[in-house]
């Protein structure tokens, strides 16, 4: 049996999971689903089978805009020489043990 029209695959959703309260959500993987509630349930069943988290986000994969490898230089290199953003840049007088 050949269907009249080719099957329309379910869209991909990216899944983010929060491992514990207070943690940031981390990318876990993706699932296929037809709508947001469906994606949420599939994400729960697929990525939270072992107590992996306390909260889930699902995002249509098509809605994510990512930087490209070509962006790497202009995006991230300029941060290299801004040592003053890091606490180690600053001297603390000897004798001050806890700052």
């Amino acid at each position: 049996m050949t269907p009249a029209s080719p099957e329309q695959p379910w869209p991909v959703w990216e899944v983010f999971i929060q491992p514990a309260a207070g943690d940031p959500h981390e990318h876990a993987g993706s699932v296929h689903a037809v709508d947001a509630e469906h994606a949420l349930q599939n994400a729960r069943d697929t990525y939270a089978r072992r107590n992996e988290g306390v909260s889930l986000w699902v995002v249509p994969a098509a809605a994510i805009t990512a930087s490209t490898p070509e962006d790497m230089g202009p995006f991230f290199d300029p941060a290299n020489d801004k040592a003053y953003r890091h606490p180690q840049f600053y001297k603390v007088p000897k004798g001050v043990k806890v700052f």
Binding site: W10, H32, Q41, N42, D45
Partner: peptide
């Protein structure tokens, strides 16, 4: 019918 549902039904 689809892999996601295999996992859900097993749960």
């Amino acid at each position: 019918p689809i892999l996601e549902e295999d996992i859900a039904l097993a749960n």
